[in-house]
Nucleic acid binder design. Structure first.
Length: 489
RNA sequence: GUCCCCAUCGUCUAGCCUGGCCCAGGACACAGCCCUUUCAAGGCUGCAACACGGGUUCGAAUCCCGUUGGGGACGCCA
């Protein structure tokens, strides 16, 4: 796949550990990964942990977990940006030495003051370069006096142009770019410096990141040049939007990848969905395996407009993936939510395993989330089920219900073998004998057996509950009707 | 405000580069029908879009300009 003449692509995902892995970050990682895998390149994970106050080890863990869950594997790293501080500072000093950067004595307070003044006049504020051309004697004096200073990059004149992998040719007038701070007054490197320094040292060939970084790109390109390095290719992915078309954020609901895991989404479904958010393989295929996505991936297919995150469609896709899952895998996936619902027992993995797998198979088509299995399985795992009020009122409350249920019980008691087909013919024969519609037996039976008006096919339900379970539930329903004569429960 | 990005059904998108095959295709959602013991699933059908205005051209969703609208960035955060 890799073009022989091209150097091996090296891409990176560089999250800052100030929060959990959110879907936006996950998608950025995913596109980097897809590109690397498609080209035979290297995918590097770099943790941008230089903001000590906001970063935490716990968040690093969370990001790693999120990526692992999605199956986005890195080839190098995780590398921690904080450990490269020496290189960052060294590059800054080199630029200072060559005049590409200069000391600035302006205090943040003073800057703030001037900014406000400019805004009051209706002007756009940009650092006015007061310190860019300080006379040598004054510069020396202030430096020797120990006056604090930061280091600023001297933005050259001209235009900065680059060819974005997704947006195409993009250009900026350098006059619109402020002389950015490289080293803070306390000597610590800032984002743009660290980022460029690391990307150079890690020999990154393609920087694939969110659209929100477009305005950093010309600054970074200028830094590459000042450092005598060849800039990489840049590709800016459109942002993921909320339903209000604004950048997806916490106020839109779940944004953390692991929240989706907890909510019952499959990693392969989220992966597939995220890949298709902003990228299309060009045909009408929507459900693709990772291998197919890797094979089909190209920046040609990456769109340039923001995409609204549609949970409905994600959920649909999750259902598609659920349908493809063999029951044996489902059993493991479903366990946490069963435990939480108090429905789990060791037997489900031992002597009742085959029965349990059959049950899952039966419920599969009706579930779109892993967590929905617990809801649907409840009637099968406990006999002391609650009847939904409307269901009971509609189908257990009618005058002949007790009698029909009793007759059904007696008929089912003699069925041999107690399987789906025999149960069905028994019920239909009974209906004919009683002169009622099959539905008049089926509907009360469904409520009696499951407590609800919605369930898998009733004969399959009977078969899987077994004769004993079925009769017990039928009896229980009859008692319920007799006792509940005081009115609707 | 300044700079940058973007603009096809409600949503994700195909088509746009290389104009005609597009009175615009697929998917989600929605509606209806079929199947049917319910609900799903499945099958079929329907609803629904080229933001607007100018050009260029025999011909524009596709190319150009403008307008409008939306978004992002404007930190000694990353």
């Amino acid at each position: 796949m890799a073009k022989m003449s091209m150097p091996q692509p090296r891409v990176r995902f560089a999250p800052s550990p100030t929060g959990f892995l959110h879907v936006g970050g996950a998608r950025t990682a995913l596109f980097n990964w897809l590109y690397a895998r498609n080209t035979g390149g290297i995918f590097i994970l770099r943790i941008e942990d230089t903001d000590v106050a906001r970063s935490s080890e716990e968040m690093v863990r969370a990001i790693l977990d999120g990526l692992a869950w999605l199956g986005i594997t890195h080839d190098e790293g995780p590398l921690f940006q904080s450990s490269f501080r020496g290189q960052h500072v060294a590059k800054a000093r080199a630029m200072e030495k060559e005049g590409a950067a200069y000391r600035c004595f302006c205090t943040p307070e003073r800057l703030e003051q001037r900014r406000r003044a400019a805004e009051a006049r209706g002007d756009v504020w940009r650092y006015d370069r007061e310190c860019a051309a300080l006379p040598e004697p004054e510069f020396r004096r202030r430096l020797d006096a120990g006056e604090p200073s930061c280091l600023r990059f001297r933005v050259p004149e001209g235009r900065t142009v680059y060819d974005d992998l997704v947006h195409g040719p993009t250009s900026f007038n350098n006059a619109d770019i402020e002389d950015l701070v490289l080293l803070r007054t306390d000597g610590s490197p800032t984002y743009n410096l660290s980022c460029v320094s690391d990307d150079i040292d890690m020999r990154i060939t393609h920087v694939i990141r969110g659209d929100d970084h477009i305005s950093n790109t010309p600054k970074q390109i200028l830094l590459y040049r000042a450092l005598g390095a060849e800039p990489p290719r840049f590709g800016h992915l459109p942002l993921i939007l909320g339903p209000d078309k604004k950048r997806l954020s916490k106020r839109h609901g779940a944004v953390s990848v692991m929240e989706y895991s907890r909510a019952g989404y499959l990693p392969e479904a989220l992966f597939n969905f995220l890949a298709l958010l902003g990228w299309s393989p060009g045909n009408d295929r929507e459900i693709l395996t990772k291998a197919e996505m890797i094979e089909a991936f190209s920046f040609e297919g990456v769109g340039s407009r923001g995409a609204v995150f549609d949970t409905e469609k994600l959920t649909w896709m999750n259902g598609e993936y659920l349908k493809m899952k063999p029951a044996t895998e489902l059993a493991a996936l479903v366990r946490p939510s069963f435990e939480e619902a108090g429905l789990w027992s060791a037997g489900l993995e031992a002597q009742r395993r085959d029965w349990f797998l059959k049950l899952l198979e039966l419920l599969k088509d009706r579930c779109r989330l892993v967590t929905e299995f617990a809801r649907d399985a409840r009637p099968f795992l406990t006999e002391s089920l609650d009847y939904e009020p409307v269901a009971a009122a509609r189908h257990l409350g009618s005058p002949g219900a007790v009698g029909r249920l009793a007759a059904l019980r007696d008929a089912l008691a003699r069925v041999e073998p107690f399987d789906e087909a025999s149960c069905e013919s028994a019920l239909r024969e009974l209906a004919a004998r009683l002169g009622v519609k099959a539905g008049d037996l089926i509907h009360p039976a469904r409520v009696a057996l499951t407590g609800r008006m919605v369930s898998p096919g009733i004969f399959a339900v009977m078969a899987i509950m077994g004769r004993e379970g079925t009769l017990a539930r039928l009896n229980r329903a009859a008692r319920f009707i007799e006792e509940g004569s005081g009115g609707t429960p």
